[in-house]
Simulated assay, not measured.
Amino acid sequence: MLHILIVRYTVPADQVTPHVAEHVAYLEHHHADGTFLLSGQTVPADIGGVILAQGERASVEGVSAEDPFVAAGVAEHEVITVDPGRVDPSLATLLPRAR
């Protein structure tokens, strides 16, 4: 399954900044282990970010709770599960059901 994690800051950006390095390490770890397929900031950036994750929802929710932003109380995640019905061929290799 695919999951969209909407990362919303719960405090002003200056309170988020001290946690950025830990958050980036968290993103890099989960990109490397294959859980995260995409991550990036919203535009404008002061809203938060978006992560596209794959795996069982319970597992992704656990990973979501480990985000240093969440642990520090400077952001929250909304997890939205998506069951892809139509997929562009360029993305098919990422989605086992679409192959």
Rank of each mutant, 00 (worst) to 15 (best):
Ala58Ser: 14
Gln54His: 08
Gln54Gly: 14
Asp14Thr: 08
Ala92Pro: 04
Ser64Ile: 06
Val43Cys: 14
Leu37Asn: 07
Ala92Leu: 08
Gly85Asn: 03
Ala58Phe: 02
Gly85Met: 09
His3Met: 12
Gly55Arg: 02
Ile51Pro: 04
Val70His: 11
Ile80Met: 10
Arg57Ser: 08
Ala25Trp: 00
Ala13Ser: 12
Ser59Thr: 13
Pro44Trp: 07
Ile4His: 00
Ile4Pro: 00
Ala71Ile: 07
Asp33Gln: 12
Pro18Cys: 12
Leu2Asn: 06
Thr10Arg: 06
Gly49Ile: 08
Ala13Leu: 15
Ser90Met: 12
Val82Gln: 09
Val24Cys: 04
Arg57Asn: 04
Pro84Gln: 10
Asp88Cys: 13
Phe69Met: 11
Thr35Ser: 14
Thr93Cys: 06
Thr10Pro: 02
Val79Ala: 05
Val50Thr: 14
His23Ala: 10
Ala45Ser: 11
Val24Gln: 12
Ile51Arg: 05
Thr10Ser: 14
Val20Pro: 00
Arg57Ile: 03
Glu66Lys: 11
Gly62Glu: 08
Arg99Pro: 03
Glu66Thr: 12
Ala32Gln: 08
Ile47Tyr: 03
His3Trp: 02
Asp14Ser: 15
Arg97Leu: 10
Asp14Ala: 15
Ser59His: 14
Val60Met: 10
Gln15Leu: 13
Leu38Arg: 06
Val70Met: 09
Leu37Glu: 07
Thr17Tyr: 02
Ala25His: 02
Leu91Cys: 11
Ala21Met: 05
Asp83Tyr: 08
Gly62Leu: 05
Ser90Gln: 11
Pro18Gly: 11
Gly40Asn: 08
Val43Ile: 10
Thr81Asp: 05
Ala98Val: 09
Gly55Val: 05
Ala58Leu: 09
Val7Tyr: 01
Gln15Val: 01
Gln41Met: 08
Pro18Met: 09
Leu91Tyr: 12
Ile80Phe: 03
Val63Trp: 02
Leu94Thr: 06
Glu28Pro: 00
Ala21Asn: 06
Val82Lys: 03
Leu38Met: 15
Ile80Asp: 00
Val24Met: 09
Tyr26His: 14
Gly34Glu: 07
His3Arg: 07
Arg8Asp: 14
Asp46Ser: 14
Val70Thr: 09
His23Gln: 11
Val87Tyr: 03
Val87Phe: 07
Val82Arg: 07
Leu37Asp: 10
Ala53Pro: 00
Val24Pro: 01
Phe69Lys: 04
Glu61Val: 07
Asp33His: 04
Ala53Trp: 00
Val16His: 03
Gly48Asp: 05
Gly73Ser: 07
Pro89Tyr: 01
Glu76Asp: 13
Val43Met: 11
His19Pro: 01
Gly49Phe: 04
Leu94Met: 13
Leu95Gln: 08
Ile4Arg: 00
His23Tyr: 07
Arg57Pro: 01
Val11Leu: 12
Arg86Trp: 10
Val7Trp: 03
Leu91Gln: 12
Leu95Met: 13
Ile4Cys: 06
Ile80Leu: 14
Ala71Met: 06
Leu95Cys: 13
Thr17Asp: 04
Val82Cys: 12
Thr10Cys: 04
Leu38Gly: 12
Ser64Val: 05
Arg8Phe: 01
Ala32Phe: 00
Ala21Val: 02
Glu61Asp: 15
Gly34Ser: 11
Gly34Ile: 10
Ile51Ser: 10
Gly55Asp: 01
Arg99Tyr: 02
Asp67Cys: 07
Gln15Tyr: 00
His29Gln: 15
Pro18His: 05
